[in-house]
Write a protein that binds this DNA or RNA. Sequence first.
DNA 1: CAAATGACTCAGC
DNA 2: TGCTGAGCCATTT
Length: 110
Amino acid sequence: MEEINFFEKVYQVARLIPVGRVTSYGAIAAYLGTKGSSRMVGWAMQAAGGAKPPVPAHRVVNRVGLLTAKGHFGGNCMAEMLESEGVRVEDDQVQDFKTVFWDPMVELAL
DNA sequence: CAAATGACTCAGC
DNA sequence: TGCTGAGCCATTT
């Protein structure tokens, strides 16, 4: 069922993240209008595992660029994918986060 | 209906 | 400067 709920919104924004870029939970939450639901974004990512098309949850990190989701992916699989896309990751943290940071509020020019 | 959970974020010490 | 506590919203039980 393709129900348009909070998760779907998160999925759509997350799928809009270009390769080599990353965003934060708060940025997506704020874009959706629920700035305080940063946790919900992460919760949506958990459910994103069965979303179609797949959601690049590995491109979604916390506000400091830390791969908090790594623990859920299993191992450093998340960092490997990010590096494969051109994102510099070191010690489970995105380097030049502000440079690779993709802000939906700006990029999508809402 | 109320309580608990969660991949976050901010403020305080 | 680094850790702890509380706040936030939506989903789940």
